[in-house]
């Protein structure tokens, strides 16, 4: 049984008051996420990431299509007992303290007062909220609210956790802590579905990713599958070569000196590096390492967004880079 499954999930809105016209926020999203996976849901602004999460939380209803969590329709109260959700830029009852909020959330799960207190304490410790837990939430910074948001999403030790931009508003230390927390969740068998603009986080954490652009799924699968097959060149590290000898080698894209007589050569995918390697060795050089240069997630993301942008007449990611969409 998949942890999350959507079939042709579609959401259209009407925009405009006098002359309403449809806005396609999400178009036929079909994906499945296995249990125990850390799934990165990626895309530029307005791609449909938050719409998808809202559909999975049944905060909005689909125009068509179907979604299931743990084999049951979304919105089922029994399913809600087994999931956790952190919305984007979370906001909570600001008259409550962090402790009171978590106790209230615990009470909604039907825990006793003592258990609510114990769970609240454990979760707040886990996200690094110390003595501030007795302050009203209106006095909290954005990053602190984000941590409280993560704590409330985990109060029930959920089997499936949905995070909408979990790193938003966090300092580098906080981001590292949350990365570790996501890995801990994975280690205990939970499924983590998170949307993010921060591709380095997704690359470090996710076993699977999906990329959405303009409300359509443009790529999905295991990260290793998506990236491993796309070798775009070779990185050759050689020792015992002179600068003059290197300059005579044809087709070298970039040369970086990393030692007295040690160089890193960046080579194109073709011709294959064996012939060049043989030439270098014949000149008295020794091989240190030879590695394929693979696409990073960012390369894949930029390529997919660019392709989708070209298809749909959208702006290319050169004009709207992933960094600028954070």
């Amino acid at each position: 049984m998949d942890a999350i499954r959507t079939e042709a999930l579609t959401k259209h809105y009407s925009v405009g008051f006098w002359r309403p016209r449809p806005y396609r926020a999400l178009e036929g999203l079909t994906l499945s996420v296995g249990q125990g996976e850390v799934f990165g849901f990626l895309g530029p602004n307005g791609a449909g990431k938050t719409t998808t999460l809202k559909l999975l939380m049944q905060l909005i209803y689909p125009t068509s299509g179907h979604a299931e969590i743990l084999g049951r329709p979304v919105g089922d109260v029994a399913v809600k007992r087994r999931i956790g959700f952190l919305p984007e830029n979370p906001y909570f009852y600001d008259h409550l303290t962090a402790e009171e909020l978590l106790e209230y959330v615990g009470a909604l799960f039907g825990y006793s007062a003592r258990e609510c207190r114990a769970r609240a304490t454990a979760r707040l410790d886990e996200v690094g909220i110390g003595a501030e837990r007795r302050l009203q939430l209106r006095k909290f910074s954005k990053g602190m609210l984000q941590r409280v948001g993560i704590a409330q999403a985990l109060i029930n030790e959920p089997e499936v956790v949905f995070f909408d931009e979990p790193m938003s508003g966090l300092d580098p230390l906080g981001r590292r802590e949350i990365r570790h927390l996501i890995l801990r969740l994975r280690d205990r068998g939970a499924t983590v579905f998170f949307s993010s603009h921060v591709l380095s986080d997704a690359e470090a954490l996710c076993s699977q990713v999906a990329i959405v652009v303009g409300g359509r799924l443009v790529s999905s699968g295991h990260l290793t599958d998506l990236l491993a097959l796309r070798v775009r060149g070779w990185e050759l590290v050689m020792a015992g070569l002179s600068r003059e000898a290197i300059e005579r080698i044809p087709g070298v894209l970039r040369v970086t000196q990393v030692g007295v007589d040690r160089y890193v050569l960046e080579l194109p995918l073709t011709p294959p590096p064996e012939q060049l390697l043989a030439t270098c060795v014949a000149h008295g050089a020794s091989l240190v390492s030879l590695n394929p240069i693979r696409d990073t997630l960012e390369d894949l993301f930029v390529r997919q967004v660019a392709a989708a942008g070209t298809d749909r007449g959208l702006s290319t990611p050169d004009a709207r880079s992933p960094e600028s969409t954070r």
Binding site: M57, V77, P87, N89, P90, F92, L108, F109, G110, G149
Partner: peptide, 14 residues
């Protein structure tokens, strides 16, 4: 308006 409803409706209540 303040979107506190997002996290509340994800909890086990109709």
């Amino acid at each position: 308006e303040q979107r506190s409803i997002y996290s509340m409706l994800a909890k086990p209540l109709s």
